[in-house]
Design a protein around this nucleic acid. Structure first.
Length: 263
DNA sequence: ATGGTAGCGTAGCTA
């Protein structure tokens, strides 16, 4: 089973790139974030034609939006809301073998890393806290579960181009890293990507649009994650982060797809 | 320290 996560930054604008990604990598399940469209205008037919007949989508106008697209049937689909908002950031579904898949888009939190001065950062921290509490209180801890998405935090030193220079930059501040790692601990999540890629090796899934030359400067961050419950660890086969997709023509997303093969 | 780009939707918010 191949699962992929990709912050697509408008699924309507980039449906062609999604189709290219499908042709080249043939994932069984694709989780998208920042689809940026209401369900009525989501390109459901184009994706069904590619074999993804089972779709659980949740979108709103202009912002956010998540989707689980699957070649395999999806059951027990649902939505989670955090921080008292219905802002289309978290959906889940169950695969035929009973594995639960969560597709999540954590708020970015804007620039100022101070929850008092910046309500968007407060929202991000609250979102992380509520996720942590919810997963901690879950009773079915042994249920095979995969959580993927743009978590908007690069937790490890080598998940950013410069740990030192990024300590004060939202996405890598100590408070966010602590909260993301607490969320990980709360459900014993295994970082399926770092399971394969050594912690001292740089790995990014996002490069800013604002760089003159994203590839030359290579100031990336690993914001997109695939986590699995410990009972799936033995089934992890391999992972791939498609760095070259950041250069796809004509209009790449600022995030690239992250893939894990399981079972 | 600042400003740099992108998408939606057509101003300004969000990233």
């Amino acid at each position: 089973m191949r699962i992929a996560t990709w912050n697509i930054n408008s699924v309507r604008l980039r449906i062609g790139l999604v189709e290219q990604f499908i042709d080249e990598h043939k994932p069984d399940v694709i989780c998208l974030q920042e689809t940026k469209t209401v369900n009525e205008t989501f390109p459901a037919a184009a994706l069904a034609a590619k074999g993804y007949k089972h779709q659980h989508i949740l979108g709103m106008k202009s912002y956010n939006g998540v989707a689980i697209l699957s070649r395999l049937p999806l059951a027990k689909t649902g939505v989670k809301n955090w921080h008292n908002r219905e802002d289309c950031r978290h959906i889940f579904a169950e695969l035929p073998d009973g594995t639960e898949v969560h597709c999540c888009y954590v708020p970015a939190g804007r620039h100022i890393p101070d929850p008092k001065a910046n309500p968007k950062f407060a929202h991000k921290l609250g979102f992380l806290d509520e996720q942590t509490a919810w997963w901690k209180s879950r009773k079915d801890k042994s249920k095979a579960t995969i959580l993927v998405g743009d978590l908007n935090v690069a937790p490890l030193e080598h998940d950013v181009w410069s740990h030192k220079q990024m300590l004060g930059v939202v996405s890598h501040t100590p408070i966010e890293v602590e909260k993301l790692l607490n969320w990980q601990k709360a459900h014993n999540w295994v970082d399926a990507v770092r399971h394969f890629v050594p912690h001292d090796q740089k790995l990014y899934s996002w490069w800013s649009y604002r760089a003159n030359d994203w590839e030359a400067s290579d100031r990336g961050r690993r914001l997109d994650h695939i986590w699995v419950t410990p009972n799936l660890t033995a089934s992890l086969k391999k992972t791939k982060t498609l760095k070259h997709a950041r250069g796809w023509d004509p209009k790449p997303s600022d995030h690239v797809p992250v893939i894990v093969d399981i079972g």
